[in-house]
Design a protein around this nucleic acid. Structure first.
Length: 883
RNA sequence: GGGCAGUUAGCUCAGCUGGAAGAGCAUUUCCCUUACAAGGAAGAGGUCGCAGGUUCAAGUCCUGCACUGCCCACCA
């Protein structure tokens, strides 16, 4: 039972993280008698290692899981990792680059071997780290988005959607990353402001002398222009609509068209239209039946342009075009201009919109269903402020480009019939799990598979169903029992990228949402509010925090700062404070255990013997309620704060201190009685705290109850009302008196070692009984040797005065008191009391207040006025007495 | 351009349905009191972003503004 004076987190953490895994504490089996509570973890990329974001995200989920488990749910938290598509391929490509080779040198097959090798070597790092920080995951259910089972889900989903006609192939304008050499979906593009120019270019009319000026941020694309567009209501240009222009440098004839999308007030009100390389232009082109000329290829090089520009990069072409326009007199002016530029979310390269043959998913119907689900509260955001942006996004969603021109990922399960020479036939492509045996159209037996892979988010979107074997096992009992899951916890950065798509796929394949509650937490920032990033050098590594302060401190600090939906600024001090709290818990427990020495048996039932007992029980019951409510609504911050406040400022500072009176009693039964309450409250608090700080609470719990279940499997305290509410007010009176006396002692510089007497002059007879019954509290905590009660007690010479708890309290301080100091202190007290009199009098003399405010409120103010008046009177007497 | 948050003590933040401004860290004084100096006791520190309004009463509700951050958008 020996406990170190300081909590040693390292040993305890090693012990328990191992225990939970080895004993399969958090493994879940179907149990139809229990309600399931399920969470699927947001699968971390295999490239990842634990950072603050993970630590926060997984801590929050673990808190929920541990809480629900103690409440009797059959909890399941599914772990796993994501193959991470482009991001992961980029990592391995970089490694290859160091060896001086490219993926093309290796070829697809060999490159994929490298990828798998790398993934098997380092891909589980993050999972091991999650074990370390105590996550209550079911380690028998580790899933990976590219393992066999998950791959079957992906294929099944694709085939089903394809056969339903929702997946189609088409040549469309897509976001192209020239560096990754792949298409990206709309949300994989991040926009960033950039200082640039607005070039004003003259486009001469073919049939007259005039010209029209267009303004553009991308002059090089003028080589691919097929029209100029103006707003039909723009009077400056109405007479020109339908006229023909001669495109400078190219000399192609293009028309002036009208389109309502054009903003009359922007630039010159006339816009050059490049349908192949701009989204808006592409739409204008569709409406006006314009020709589309591709002038940039997938490598970012110019094509289909006059010879002198052919093959140039976009940047080079821009310089040349601007120079040539200027020389030929077509450049009207150049303005400074800031606008946002799309960049690849994986490598930050500027994205090039261009025409490309891709696979698309028609999301119209799925979006509608997801919107309905949100409107019908089948999905609920915490905080709810995310609902609107989420719905808006879904409503404006365009078809999802799901194909990627990379190698790492789920290869699209589409097979093309080919002839003997390997050329594609005209037969319809076939969507299939495996290579088809025979083409149903031409009976041919040769096929090639589509070269592209699926967007990594396609498999992520299936996660809540794929982890339960959807697609592999037609009759998955797990899926029936655990789906829909209970809550999804994630940061707001992937609401669209991931959350929305899971909902869409859940509704599509399971006819039900994947989870009801969507718990959105913030992002961890540094103490200056900056996003943590390697380049800024402000990254706080959770592993360093664990090393220095312990995992429980890390978890507590994160939980405490994580108000739903809000970003949090976190600094070293918060971890330090949490570590200190852990130590406090440790030492309070140590105190109790020390006093347990030699006590063989405790009382079975707790029995409140005096005021402090009733009070701490009432306080605990109220704390329990608040903590439960907080956990249930994902307000871990409130839960952490409530527990901290209760344990430290109520249990430790008051109850334990008061318990010492009985603890030193020679009567073993007295000691036994108070210990039973001390332990009852301690155990209860440990249970409230254990979802947040599982390690230290597990350890103490085990020391306390050698043979009982571990705390993670214990039953969470049930709501109770012992009817001790009156004790709260009584205790408040006692605390008021004790604090006032302490303040006097402190201000008079009287050492705690000096025991002094006190005279209590009774002012309020209603409080007399309570104070007399509990005078030993005052003696113990205010270091008073004896108390003499009486009425109209004459103030002793050289004494200090306090008015508190319905008493005028004199402390005779012969030889200890500084009369001048006492006088000035009393004057200050009087000033404060006078303010109180002013405030309350003002209120009470306000007719409207007395008339309209609730009675209780008026009485309260009246009492305050009376108290202050008495106080002033008494202090004045004392001042006179002092001379 | 639209939307959403935030603005309370030097710093990080609590303050639920409106009724006397709170915590932690930092700071000052005293204390190694036999659970804890990673501690205890006490103190100092705020006209709750600004301006209006509703109300007997506003940090709390309403309107407008300012600043900060985030998200969205077809910013040529």
């Amino acid at each position: 039972m020996d406990m170190d004076k300081v909590y040693n987190s390292k040993e305890v953490e090693k012990k328990w993280s191992k225990y939970w895994v080895e004993n399969k504490t958090f493994s879940a089996k179907i149990d139809k008698n229990k309600k399931p509570f399920t969470i699927v973890i947001p699968p971390a990329n295999v490239t990842g290692s634990l950072h603050m974001g993970h630590a926060l995200n997984t801590t929050l989920q673990d808190i929920i899981i541990r809480f629900k488990k103690m409440q009797g749910y059959n909890t399941l938290w599914v772990p796993g990792t994501d193959h991470g598509g482009i991001a992961t391929q980029n990592v391995v490509e970089k490694l290859l680059k160091k060896e001086g080779i490219t993926k093309y040198d290796l070829g697809r097959e060999k490159f994929l071997e490298k990828m798998w090798q790398w993934r098997s070597e380092t891909g589980d790092t993050i999972l091991d780290q999650l074990k370390m920080i105590g996550c209550g995951l079911d380690w028998d259910r580790v899933s990976f988005t590219m393992d066999e089972s998950r791959s079957k889900s992906v294929k099944k989903a694709f085939i089903q959607l394809f056969e339903k006609g929702l997946i189609y192939r088409g040549k469309r304008l897509v976001n192209w990353c020239p560096r990754c050499s792949t298409a990206l979906s709309d949300i994989e593009v991040e926009y960033e402001d950039e200082k640039s120019n607005l070039w004003h270019i003259k486009y001469p009319l073919r049939d007259s002398d005039g010209y029209i000026i267009v303004a553009t941020t991308r002059p090089e694309t003028m080589l691919g222009d097929t029209a100029v567009a103006v707003n039909p209501d723009d009077e400056r240009y109405t007479h020109l609509v339908g006229k023909t222009l001669k495109l400078p440098l190219v000399n192609r004839e293009i028309k002036i068209v009208s389109d309502y999308i054009i903003d009359k007030s922007f630039g010159t009100g006339a816009v050059k239209v490049t349908p192949a390389h701009d989204v808006t232009d592409n739409e204008i082109a569709k409406r006006s039946n314009l020709e589309t000329i591709e002038i940039i290829d997938i490598n970012g090089k110019m094509i289909n342009v006059p010879a002198k520009y052919q093959g140039l990069s976009v940047e080079e072409a821009r310089k040349e075009v601007v120079k040539d326009l200027e020389e030929a007199g077509f450049l009207a002016k150049i303005e400074d201009y800031a606008h946002s530029v799309g960049r690849c979310y994986r490598c930050s390269t500027k994205v090039e919109p261009l025409m490309s043959e891709q696979w698309f998913l028609n999301v119209g119907e799925m979006s509608k269903k997801a919107v309905d689900a949100a409107n019908d509260s089948k999905t609920v955001f915490h905080p709810q402020s995310w609902k609107r942006p989420y719905i808006l996004w879904l409503e404006n969603l365009r078809d999802w480009c799901i194909s990627r021109q990379i190698w790492w990922g789920h290869r699209i399960p589409i097979y093309y019939c080919v002839d003997d020479k390997g050329n594609r036939t005209n037969c319809k492509p076939i969507a299939s799990f495996d290579k088809p045996k025979e083409c149903p159209h031409c009976k041919g037996k040769n096929f090639v598979q589509d070269e592209d892979v699926l967007d990594t988010w396609f498999s992520s979107a299936l996660w809540p169903i794929s982890v339960f074997g959807w697609g592999e096992n037609e009759n998955s009992q797990d899926l029936k029992y655990f789906y829909p899951t209970s809550v999804l916890a994630t940061g707001h950065e992937i609401i669209y990228l991931w959350v929305a798509r899971m909902v869409q796929f859940g509704l599509e394949f399971m006819k039900d949402v994947p989870y009801k509650d969507i718990f959105i937490h913030g992002i961890v920032r540094d103490k200056h509010g900056k996003k943590m990033s390697k380049s800024l050098g402000n990254v706080v590594d959770p592993r360093d925090i664990i090393e220095k302060y312990g995992t429980d401190a890390l978890r507590f600090a994160l939980a405490q700062s994580a108000a739903p939906g809000r970003d949090m600024q976190i600094s070293e001090e918060s971890f330090l404070a949490a570590r200190n709290f852990a130590n406090k818990v440790w030492n309070a427990s140590r105190f109790i255990l020390m006093n347990l020495e030699g006590i063989d048996k405790l009382d079975e039932k707790i029995k409140a013997a005096e005021l402090a007992d009733e009070w701490i029980i009432a306080e605990f019951e109220s704390t329990l309620e608040k903590v439960k409510t907080a956990y249930d609504s994902y307000n871990t911050d409130a839960a952490a704060r409530e527990i901290y406040d209760f344990f430290w400022t109520k249990y430790c500072d008051w109850y334990i201190e008061l318990s010492k009176i009985r603890m030193t009693s020679s009567d073993i039964n007295v000691k036994r009685q108070v210990l039973s309450i001390l332990i009852y409250i301690l155990k209860g608090t440990l249970q409230l705290l254990s979802p947040v700080m599982p390690f230290i609470t597990s350890e103490i719990w085990q020391i306390l109850n050698k043979d009982e279940k571990i705390i993670a499997e214990s039953v969470f305290p049930k709501t109770k009302d012992s009817g001790f509410l009156e004790s709260l007010e009584k205790m408040r009176i006692m605390q008021d008196i004790i604090v006032k006396i302490r303040t006097l002692r402190s201000e008079m510089n009287i050492s705690p070692a000096v025991q002094i007497e006190a005279l209590f002059d009774i002012l309020d007879e209603n409080k007399e009984k309570t104070v007399k019954e509990n005078e030993h509290y005052i003696k113990q905590l205010a270091k008073i040797i004896s108390i003499q009660f009486g009425k109209n007690i004459e103030r002793p010479k050289n004494s200090a005065l306090a008015v508190a708890g319905g008493f005028e309290i004199f402390l005779p301080l012969e030889g200890l008191i500084d009369i001048e100091k006492e006088k000035s202190r009393l004057s200050k007290e009087i000033a404060i009391a006078k303010q109180e009199v002013e405030r309350t009098t003002a209120k009470l003399s306000n007719e409207n207040f007395v008339k309209r405010a609730p009675k209780a409120e008026v009485e309260k103010i009246q009492t305050r006025l009376n108290d202050a008046t008495v106080k002033i009177e008494k202090i004045n007497e004392s001042l006179k007495f002092l001379g």
